[in-house]
């Protein structure tokens, strides 16, 4: 009734657990819903980890961009420009090619005839994660940088008046305000990042043992059933649900960031003005 049989067979297929062979004939709606859902595990994996790690690098990049020293500012500027200025599709492709070449070119000789084992970087779970991590860091870094420049002068003066300096001043005054200002745009970035995870198996990174993301299985079904009108809308529905979850989690966090403000000043909903939507 609830696709129980398919759930057992294919529920974790994207991780390599369950039936080894994908369904090939008499494909039911249950097969498609379960297997595509199983692929969503990877979309969530990529999205959550890249976002979590990217949050810290983004903060560093924002500070780097705001630094007075050109030695810090320039690299941060270039990093952000490189990843924001080019399509993710091409980043994936080039990264995969680069990772494939890595072990040959530096590993051999240095680490013996076998070379250093950097082979895992060519696997999507690691290599694509690195690309997504850099990518989202660059976008979020730009958002944080914009917010950093908008931190009200009064807040900083108040911090000075209280004698806060250095890291304490940053952690207690600048950083929370920056996050508060950046939050709506950062929410959008998170949504986009989850969407971007569908590109992983589409450009560059190959699927191993038919373990892929939601889009990978959808295109498998589109090929097997010769009907694109069922699997792709299933992916779309899954992503609408995922987006709603992301939005609710982020707005909960946003409320926490704004909890000290009087209720009339709290933004009721993310404002679209001037916000970076990638």
């Amino acid at each position: 009734m609830m696709c129980a049989e398919e759930l057992g067979a294919y529920g974790l297929r994207s991780l390599g657990i369950g039936e080894r062979l994908l369904p090939r004939s008499d494909i039911t709606l249950c097969d498609q819903v379960v297997l595509i859902g199983s692929g969503m595990i990877w979309n969530v994996y990529f999205g959550v980890l890249a976002l979590a790690a990217g949050f810290f690098l983004a903060t560093l990049l924002a500070l780097g961009k705001a630094a007075t020293s050109a030695w810090i500012r320039k690299p941060a500027d270039w990093f952000v420009f490189l990843f924001r200025g080019s399509p993710l599709f091409i980043q994936f492709f080039l990264a995969y090619e680069a990772f494939v070449r890595l072990p040959d070119s530096i590993g051999v000789g240095l680490f013996g005839a076998e070379g250093a084992d950097l082979g895992w970087l060519t696997r999507a779970y690691a290599g694509a994660l690195v690309v997504l991590f850099f990518n989202t860091s660059a976008y979020a870094g730009e958002i944080f940088y914009g917010a950093l420049r908008s931190v009200p002068k009064g807040d900083l003066e108040a911090a000075d008046a209280y004698g806060l300096t250095g890291f304490t001043r940053f952690r207690r005054i600048v950083w929370p305000t920056m996050l508060r200002l950046a939050w709506p745009a950062y929410t959008n970035e998170a949504i986009f990042l989850f969407h971007a995870t569908t590109l992983v198996f589409f450009s560059g990174f190959p699927a191993w043992r038919q373990q892929g993301d939601a889009l990978y299985y959808a295109s498998y079904f589109a090929d097997k059933t010769f009907n694109p009108f069922i699997p792709y809308p299933i992916v779309a529905l899954y992503f609408i649900v995922l987006t709603l979850i992301v939005i609710s989690l982020f707005s909960a966090a946003g409320r926490r960031l704004n909890r000290h403000l009087p209720s009339s000043e709290r933004p009721r909903r993310p404002r679209a003005i001037g916000q970076l939507i990638r």
């Binding site: 190959p206 043992r209 038919q210």
Partner: peptide, 8 residues
Amino acid sequence: GATLLEFA
């Protein structure tokens, strides 16, 4: 039974 690696 071998590991399949798929390319476009």
